[in-house]
Structures are given as structure tokens and as C-alpha cells.
């Protein structure tokens, strides 16, 4: 309280009467404007511009020609687009293993034994490593000539396939690499969630004879709803955003077999100078992701509105 009194003594020195009278209106505007201006300029407005660009043909310089829905029509007949979209579905479905695996690792590590805090951190730290590094390591693992997997299988007489240069396997090889840090992230969410599970409810359920799997599904998981929700949303968005690993591991190849929408968009814009076509791909990806963003926001704001 003393600090507040000191502050109030200094009030006469600051601002005019008008400003002081209206400061409950002026302050929020002044506080929010800089952030909102930057965010609008670099995020919100570019989204609108990109959607606009998806209706034109443009090489990045020179004039833009209005082509209406032509870019979208072309996409419908573009096999690479469909391949990339299919791969995004693979990413999305297989990435959902991350929350599941993360939950089981969290349950495995949720014990009080010597050194467990360090073990938890070590399990988490793939998430802190750059995806570029993750991509490089997994590419070494997969290398058919001198990779770890090939070397390990060699004595068994098994020939390890060249995963990343195989049209059928490349995408799955990349997804596996992506699952590694994503699982670490989900694990930490669940560890935090498990921390705040009500022990009395668990004990009561145990007294009623619930244990193991049934205890987990009926009593514990409902209490982990918040963690599950965040883990699933962030994982889905991560799957749809996948770019770095594809760029470093295969560049979308061989023959676009491991392409995803995010990379195909980049490819069209940077290497083929097809800004309009690239924007149409980005717009489609954006629309797909909007579903999940909207879902996330609705849950979040429902909780928020209850509070102040």
C-alpha cells in the first residue's frame, strides 16, 4: 500500500485533466494499438492479400492478371496437389499417435524415484532441438548405405530399404521423425496434467475397486481433458504446418511423393514464380486449418468469458 500512496502523490505531475478523466478509455487503446498494428500489418492483412492473390496470375514482379477461379480449377486437376493433400491427411492421422504415446510416456514417468526430474527433462528435450537437426539425424538413420538402421540390420542379412528415396515410404519416414519431438511435447502436457489430478478422487475410485485400465479411462482421463484438448489441437496444427522436415529430408521428393501442401506452395512460389497458384494452395491449407483454429478458439473463449 505504501507504494500506492507514493504513486498517488506524484499524480499531479502527470498529464492534463482531460487525459486523466478519460484514461480508462485512452489507456486500453494506447496499450493495445502498437501490438495490434504490428500484428495487423504482418499477419492479418497478409492473409487477406494472399486470398486476393489466389484469384490472379502473377510472377512476383510485373502486372497481375485477374483469372477468377482458374487457379482453383487447375488445382483440382493437379495430381501433385492431390498427392500433397493425401500426405497431409497421413500426417494428420499418424501425428495423432503423439498424444497417445505422450500419455503413456507421461504415465511411465509419473513416479517419485531418484533422478526422475532429470529423466523427465531428458525425455522432453527433443522438442527443444531444431527440426532441421532432427531431420538431419533421421536422414542418417535411414541412409541405405551407411545409416544406423541399415548397419544394424546388415548382420541379420536384411537389406534395409532406402526409405527417403522410396516413393511409398518417404512420407512415413518423415512423419516418424516429426513424431519424435511432437510426442515429447504431448508428454510434458500430460505430466503437467497428471500433477493436478485430484488424488482423493483416485483414492476413492481405488476403494471402489477400480484399477489399471478402467481407472485410467473412467477416472483419470476425464481429469486430463484440458491437457488432451491442447495436445490434440497443437498436434493437428503441427501436422498441417509440416514444412521444415520435408524441406530438409526430401524436398518433397522423390517425384513429389512426400510433398505436403505447405511445401508445394513454397515450391510454386519460389521455384516456379507462380504466386497466384501458390496463394491458392495456401488458401486451401488456411481454410482446412481454420476448422481447427475455430474449434480451439470456441473452447478457449467459452472458458474465458466465464472469468473476468
Amino acid at each position: 500500500m505504501t507504494e500506492i500512496q507514493v504513486l498517488s502523490n506524484s499524480r499531479r505531475r502527470t498529464g492534463s485533466t482531460f487525459l486523466r478523466k478519460h484514461q480508462l478509455i485512452i489507456a486500453p487503446v494506447a496499450f493495445i494499438t502498437p501490438a495490434f498494428a504490428m500484428f495487423s500489418l504482418f499477419v492479418i492483412y497478409p492473409i487477406i492479400q494472399s486470398i486476393g492473390l489466389s484469384f490472379v496470375e502473377w510472377q512476383g514482379i510485373g502486372p497481375q492478371t485477374w483469372v477468377g477461379l482458374d487457379n482453383y480449377r487447375e488445382l483440382l486437376g493437379d495430381p501433385v496437389f492431390w498427392k500433397a493433400l493425401t500426405n497431409n491427411v497421413y500426417w494428420l492421422v499418424l501425428f495423432l499417435l503423439a498424444p497417445v504415446l505422450g500419455l503413456f510416456i507421461a504415465l511411465f514417468l509419473n513416479q517419485n524415484v531418484f533422478g526422475i526430474r532429470l529423466v523427465k527433462s531428458l525425455f522432453f528435450f527433443p522438442f527443444v532441438v531444431s527440426q532441421i537437426v532432427v531431420g538431419l539425424v533421421f536422414a542418417w538413420f535411414y541412409d541405405p548405405a551407411f545409416g544406423l538402421l541399415a548397419t544394424m540390420l546388415e548382420p541379420l542379412g536384411v537389406k534395409f530399404p532406402a526409405i527417403l528415396s522410396n516413393e511409398n515410404w518417404a512420407t512415413f519416414g518423415i512423419i516418424l521423425a516429426g513424431l519424435w519431438p511432437q510426442t515429447a511435447y504431448c508428454m510434458i502436457l500430460y505430466l503437467t496434467g497428471l500433477n493436478s489430478v485430484n488424488p482423493e478422487v483416485i483414492e476413492a475410485a481405488r476403494l471402489d475397486g477400480a484399477k489399471g485400465w478402467r481407472l485410467l479411462v473412467n477416472i483419470v482421463l476425464p481429469q486430463l481433458r484440458a491437457a488432451t484438448f491442447i495436445a490434440v489441437v497443437v498436434t493437428i496444427i503441427g501436422a498441417l504446418r509440416s514444412f521444415d522436415l520435408v524441406a530438409i529430408m526430401t524436398g518433397g521428393g522423390p517425384y513429389n511423393s512426400s510433398n505436403v501442401l505447405a511445401y508445394y506452395m513454397y515450391d510454386n512460389a519460389i521455384f516456379r514464380y507462380r504466386m497466384g497458384y501458390a496463394s491458392a494452395i495456401a488458401t486451401i491449407l488456411f481454410l482446412i486449418m481454420d476448422l481447427y483454429i475455430a474449434w480451439f478458439l470456441m473452447r478457449l473463449l467459452k472458458n474465458e468469458k466465464g472469468s473476468r
Binding site: Y45, S50, I51, L240, A269, A278, S279, A282, L285, F286
Partner: peptide
């Protein structure tokens, strides 16, 4: 949460 690609060109 938006994909970076929707921001890229602008």
C-alpha cells in the same frame, strides 16, 4: 495458428 504459407508472399 495460421499456416506460414498464407503470409509468405505478402
Amino acid at each position: 495458428f495460421v499456416p506460414f504459407q498464407i503470409l509468405m508472399i505478402p
